[in-house]
Each structure stands twice: as C-alpha cells, then as structure tokens.
Design a protein around this nucleic acid. Sequence first.
DNA 1: AGTTCTAATGTAATTAAATTACAACAAATC
DNA 2: GATTTGTTGTAATTTAATTACATTAGAACT
Lengths: 285, 285
Amino acid sequence: MNVLEKIVGSATSFSKSERKVADVILANPQITIHSSIAALAKMADVSEPTVNRFCRRLDTKGFPDFKLHLAQSLANGTPYVNRHVEEEDGPEAYTAKIFESTMAALDTARQHVDINTINRAVDVLTQAKKISFFGLGASASVAHDAQNKFFRFNVPVVCFDDIVMQRMSAINSSDGDVVVCISHTGRTKNLCDIAAIARENDATVIGITAYDSPLARECTLVLSLDVPEDTDMYMPMASRVAQLVLIDILATGFTLRRGSKFRENLKKVKDSLRGSRFEKKDFNN
Amino acid sequence: MNVLEKIVGSATSFSKSERKVADVILANPQITIHSSIAALAKMADVSEPTVNRFCRRLDTKGFPDFKLHLAQSLANGTPYVNRHVEEEDGPEAYTAKIFESTMAALDTARQHVDINTINRAVDVLTQAKKISFFGLGASASVAHDAQNKFFRFNVPVVCFDDIVMQRMSAINSSDGDVVVCISHTGRTKNLCDIAAIARENDATVIGITAYDSPLARECTLVLSLDVPEDTDMYMPMASRVAQLVLIDILATGFTLRRGSKFRENLKKVKDSLRGSRFEKKDFNN
DNA sequence: AGTTCTAATGTAATTAAATTACAACAAATC
DNA sequence: GATTTGTTGTAATTTAATTACATTAGAACT
C-alpha cells in the first residue's frame, strides 16, 4: 500500500496536529517532497517533531524516508490507470488511454497471477508427450500464438480454433498429453465440453481462463488472470494481451527448464528464416 | 526522462570515480535510496563530494534530491536496464521480468507511435470497401486477431496467413481496398512482394512494421512501433503485444469514427454469443 | 468543579548528514 | 619538463533531522 493511500486510510487515527500535517501534504504532495521538515512544519503550522512523529506513525524511518515513500507514491499513482475511452475522444486521447489501460491490466495481472500454478504448468508442459492449444473467437489467435511459440521447442504441438477438430483431438488424447484451453470468460459451453472430454481421456488440462468459471471447474490446472475488461467497446482487448503475456511466460519457463543447450535450438529455428528475409545490409545500399 | 535512464545514457561522460558511483547505484538502486551519502561513497570507494558532484551532474539539486528522483524512477515499476531473463531465474523472477519488460515495451511504443498516422489509418479503414490482414509466422496471430475485431464492424474483412492466398488476394484487390501487412522486422521478402502487388492494384497498403524497412518502403502508410525486442529468447514477445495494442487502437478509432449508433451493432454481435455460453446465474447454483 | 493522569505538542539541545571551500594530485598540453 | 586543466579527496561549515525533555491540553475520576 502506498503512503498516500495510507494517509487517507488512517485519517481517523490522527491527532489534531497530525491532521494539519496530513492536510498540507495531501494538498501539495509535490511541494512536500522538495521541502525540509522545517518548511513543512511551518506550512502546517506545527512543530518539527510533530512532522517527524507523523512520519513515524506511517511506518517510515523518519522524514527523509517518508519523502522517499511519498515520491514513489506520486510516481506510481499516475501512470497506469485504467482509463476508459469516451465518445468524444480524439486520436491522441484514445491512443493514450488504450496504451495505459493495457499497461494497467498487465500490472494487475502480474499481481494476481499465481506463481506456483505457473511453475506447475511449466512442469506439466515440459513433460508433455503432445501439447494442444484450443481457443475460440478472440482466444483463437492466442492459441495460434502459443502454437507459434511452442512448436519451436521441437515438441508435438497442435492448435485448433474449430470445435469439431478440438473435439476429435480431445477424444484422441491420452495420458501424458496436455491440453491448454483458452477462454477469457470460461463460459463457452463447447470449450467446457472439450475440456471435460480431454480429462476423461487422461489428458492434463490447463485452463487459461477466469477463476471460478465453468471451464475452470473442468481443468486440472487453472491459470487465472483477473484482468478487468473494459466492456465499453464490446471487444476483448486487455484480457487477451494478458493471456499472450502468460503464454510468453510459460514459453520462457519451458526454455529455462530445458537448459542452455536447448536454447541453441531456438536460435537455429530463428536462423532458418534467414533465407526468406532481406538482410539488413542488402537494404542499406 | 527518468534518472536511471539518464545514468545509463550519460555513461560516457562520466569520469572514473563517477563511473564507480554509477555502477554501484545501478547495481543496488533500492539500497541506494535508503543510504546516506557517506554509505554510498564508501560502497563506491570514493569520497562524499564525488557522490555529490555525481548527483549534480544529473541535474538534481544534491544527494537528497537525487534519491527522490531515483525513488520515483524505481517506483514506476517499469524496467530500467537489465530486465532480461537470466539462465538462473526462478518462476517468480522470470514472470516478473516478462510482465515488466512487456509493460516497458508498451510504454516506449506509446511514446514513439505517430498519432497522425494512426488517424490517417483510421480514415482509410473507415472508408475501405474491403480490409485484408496479412501476416506470417508470429504476426499471423496478430492478423487473426485483427480480423476478429474488424469483422464485428460489418465490413468485409479477410485474413490470410498463407503466401499463396495472400498473393491471390493482393492481385485481386482494387481501388478502395485496404491491405494491412503485419511484420515486426519488415524484412520478410514474400510479404514485401505482396505489399507491392497490392499497391500496383491500387489498394491502400498499411504496414504495421519497422520504420525504414523494405516492407515500409512498399506501404502507403507505415505504423511503426519501435519496440526494442529482447532477442535472448529468440521469440517475438513484446513486439507482438505492441502490435496487438495497435490493432486495438485502430479498431477503437474505427468505432468512434462510426458514431454511437454503430456501437449498438457491436453489442448485438456480442449478444449473439449468449446462446453458446453459460450464463452467470446458471453457474452460481 | 477540582485534581490527577495521560496523551499531545513544542522548545532547545544534540546528532547526523550534506555541502562548500580548498588543497593535492593526475593527466594532458605546450 | 613545466604548466595548465581537470579530477578527487580532506577538513570545515552549514544545514537538516532527531532526541530528550518540558509544557500544555484534554480526559477521567473523585
């Protein structure tokens, strides 16, 4: 919890003089961080030790330390806020807002994601005989992306964005196979069925979906992101970015688990593209 | 520009002792902000005034002021330097690093993106008779995602991740058609060809690619993101997230341009999914 | 209402920290 | 090799923050 919030939060437990200090700080936080304890004391019309005591009450070591925390609060506060796009926004406004709310979403995702589950998912994936990525609608592109990452690892990977193929694939799965079901809401009936079928056939099912959703119930392992989606636009935006980052994390975990020798393989995959590309030097003349 | 970046940036202009100070600070920024000038001087094995001069060189009022700036830099959570995944990172470390470097990438993308071009791209897209999204490899999933967004707008949209189809589609394009080519490097030969073909057939070609790349040359409009990609993992990660956000921005711009009546259409598309989903109430009992 | 106790606040002294002025030194130039 | 310029450190000074203690205000109890 940042200091500014803490000041507001513990407002009731302040004494009269501490109140005065709090008010001055909240009114001019930016000035506060560049003031000495004497200047602030004068502004709040209290003595210097009162300011010092105020700082200590907020679990800081003293005034300088308090300023440090305050500075951090101020820096943190502004950047990543979830701002909604409004009807009258111009290109500048909506561009900024979408970038910022996406970053905000990633920030909350980072805080909510369960490292332990990620680790277990990586475990499961590294030991998989075959990995299947299933997604529908907007999540289909996430599934494709996942396939694009994991096929580089020289593991059998498939990706289906079609219920019929998914269903057939699920029925054919067996012990040692891993099925990754991707769905933001976790309420798509067909995908729930498919997860159930895969599990009945002894596959390990990893869900990249909402915690406490019907799909989550069907999964062996649930990777939940808890990203607040801006539904004003009726399109999945931030949630899908978070899903992709999660895929990146799983893929990274995978490569790290495999060790450095394996990483050379990845380079080979990348190098294989050379022929199909313009080299930088070709272009610079 | 934040202090950490500034330290890295002005690395060359430092003297020998200042270098020592910079190294110590970059290595333990968190410790630095809680140290006195004496402690830091000792760590860097220099005198106190040297540290002070170092602070002043970075346009701060002195050491305490420098610590304030440093605290703010750190607070942003965003990466400074060396947020790359290391061999020995555990799940906690690599998860944090990937989230942070992705957010950092979005932040730089936001700063570099040209609003004017975005606006023109939205113009072009709203007036398109048909929109085609082309991508190969990792960019294919971005193209799919774009299709998933734009088809909701009731405009003819196609998406191909296959050079043959792309080529045929490009040849058949005509005045009023918009082709969006997606490629991080902008050096994929086949895609450059396809962009050229589309333009020869009077289509407007929008490139989501690197500025100053062969592909960029072939495009009518270039949306450049300038995201520094961490190539350690040999996989496109941050760049692709930035591309997706850009797609979100274009889609949002599109809906805003079309006005509020149009937005009701979007809701209808979303509502159409209802039958295929578990309702929240169904699940809660 | 008066007394006593406790908590809150301020004053003054102390300590710690940062900055300045200046001297010594190293490296570069003539 | 001398001189100049720039860099670094030592010691003195100044400034800021903290502590110890005294005072006051307010609450609780007689």
